[in-house]
Nucleic acid binder design. Structure first.
Lengths: 146, 146
DNA sequence: CGACGACCTCAACCTAGCTTGAGGTTATAT
DNA sequence: ATATAACCTCAAGCTAGGTTGAGGTCGTCG
């Protein structure tokens, strides 16, 4: 962990594609932490690039920042995460994707029945029942259907 | 279309499960229209129950209100939509679901490669590239992962 | 005909996830 | 030594999709 492992926020921004303001916001929300220079400027670890990579992927899957924070909590504290750590946490994401696909598939099947009857009626049609709610999901408004 | 086909907003609310305020909001946004009594109260057509049913399903699939409005525009104007009309518009939703499943499947495959290499790095890993953006999607914040 | 629930409008507020701007400081290249 | 790019904080603003509340009217049942 020499001096070169510490990067300023602008560099992190370029490496992740995230806006500087977004990174500061994530820090405020506790998704990421930083050290400070004598002059009060943030310095991040290189491994935070990967951490923010994870954040972005998880967001695209529709996880909210609190959920993402919970996932990230599985990473080791005090030590830079290694390949194994990342594999573990990635598998957790994979499960998330799987369950989303399942929900969508179920919704599609139900919709097919409804196309058959042409109904779409809330009384008779089961498609609008609660169990399907999670097939929606998504991050902030600005990400809807890019 | 006799007098009984016109229902007040509270009844529509009960039939759809939507809040009265939400229905008024949808009307304001142009997703639905109403007639008025002499005393300025809204009266809706019974077929609006189905229309709002469609809105709810589409929302759960992550469509935003503008997109939903565009879909609804495919319904006949001036005439109460019949079974065929609803079948047609439902099939459009089905396509939407299909493409979402495809995107998720692609994302999962890529993630699998990344689990293999343990990377999650934005530089080397293709998982964060633009084409995957739409796998996110979702309605307002309050619907994230119910 | 009076009570009372259902309805009306309009403005303000809410959450998530940020961005923007003002006003000021730090780090670095020359 | 200085220019200037990058950084800092804090408050306010934005979008989506609504909800909440105040203050007032309608419609219908007994």
């Amino acid at each position: 962990m020499n001096r070169n492992d510490l990067i300023p926020i602008g560099a992190l921004s370029r490496r992740t594609g995230l806006a500087v303001s977004a990174i500061r916001y994530y820090e405020e929300r506790g998704l990421i932490t930083s050290l400070r220079t004598g002059g009060n400027q943030r310095r991040f670890l290189r491994s935070d690039i990967r951490r923010l990579g994870f954040v972005q992927i998880a967001q695209r899957l529709g996880l909210g920042l609190p959920e993402i924070e919970r996932e990230l909590a599985a990473l080791p504290q005090g030590r830079t995460p290694n390949t194994m750590d990342w594999q573990k946490i990635s598998r957790s994401l994979r499960k998330e994707i799987d369950s989303r696909i399942q929900l969508l598939t179920r919704t599609r099947n139900k919709l097919d029945e409804c196309i058959g009857c042409g109904c779409l009626s809330l009384d008779r049609c089961h498609i609008t029942n609660k169990e399907d709610r999670a097939s929606a999901a998504g991050p902030g408004p600005r990400y809807v259907l890019d």
